[in-house]
Design a protein around this nucleic acid. Structure first.
Lengths: 170, 170
DNA sequence: GCGGAATAGTTGAACATTCATTTAAGTTAG
DNA sequence: CTAACTTAAATGAATGTTCAACTATTCCGC
């Protein structure tokens, strides 16, 4: 991979006539960025494919079911579920339609608040989840943790937390 | 985020009657995994949204154009382009249709090999790319590098390379 | 040079995701 | 009480991605 992503590099940034204000990436940053993209792609694709094979669903849906499975009564308000699973309401609504078609969840009206709905994980849903979990976790391990030593695991956590909290702040 | 992703945790894994062979994640690993997912999501969504706004295309397409822009004559064989941009041939083909509709690339028959096509970046395509690059790079910087110190940038590269080469190996 | 395998690329169906819009129900100021 | 606003969720259109055919050409062995 000696390819330069367009203008990630400095070499195109400063013409004598029109100096740019863009903070282009340094050589090290470019290298990190490309490596990061490769890792990211690798991990996402691996997990996505594995879940599609073993559970017949994308990771988003898996997380939705997983979150539901740990809620009291395996039941949650749609909005709360969206928040905890990190999806938009719209996405959850579409997903819920699929998941309901598959028989993995049910939707019930919320009695307190008639605008709302409750999503409930069915036994079938719990089954699917239980069967998918081991190979999912095994895949996570093999694609990520098996490649890292314990220091790196700690470093990665710090890095990820820094990025996420920086996002929240700035 | 004190939520446990289903069976990422050990607490459900070992029943007395049916000990599992799954290598469940340790507490540290779980924490790292959740942080990683959050970071990953944050970065991807931020970039995707920014590019959609500023360039009217997803990141996949941006990378395709970027790779083309650095090829001799801004021209590349479809298969080679797919490889270098990290897409499947099918995805590239669909993308090329869109990009051609937008007037950002052209497809020409390949004379040496009549099975093949050459993708050529148009001036309009180069324009779009040139305009999108600064804000794209700025977004990369603000969402990732601004959150990290130089040690972490180096650590992240090592981690990403370890994951990617581990993938290639094992 | 011919027949079968491999390669380049396209296509369409199925599905996921986003965005903007819509419907319904709750909330609140006056 | 009622009009205006907000929140919960669904919906539909537009777009992107994957997978499995499918077509056209080239390669390869005999």
């Amino acid at each position: 991979m000696n390819v330069q992503l367009f203008r990630y590099s400095r070499h195109m940034s400063s013409t004598r006539t029109a100096p740019s204000r863009t903070r282009w990436l340094s050589t090290d940053e470019q290298a990190t960025w490309r490596s990061f993209l490769a890792m990211q792609k690798r991990i996402r694709e691996t997990l996505e494919r594995q879940l599609q094979q073993d559970a017949g669903m994308p990771m988003t849906y898996y997380v939705i079911l997983a979150m539901l499975s740990e809620a009291p009564e395996r039941t949650m308000r749609m909005t709360e579920l969206a928040a905890i699973a990190g999806t938009s309401q719209s996405q959850l609504s579409h997903a819920a339609t699929r998941l309901e078609d598959a028989g993995w969840i049910e939707r019930r009206r919320c009695l307190d608040d008639k605008r709302g709905y409750l999503a409930v994980l069915t036994d079938a849903g719990f089954e699917v989840l239980s069967k998918a979990a081991p190979s999912h976790v095994e895949t996570v391990r093999s694609v990520l943790f098996d490649a890292l030593d314990p220091d790196q695991v700690a470093q990665l956590k710090d890095i990820a937390d820094a990025v996420t909290s920086h996002a929240a702040t700035g």
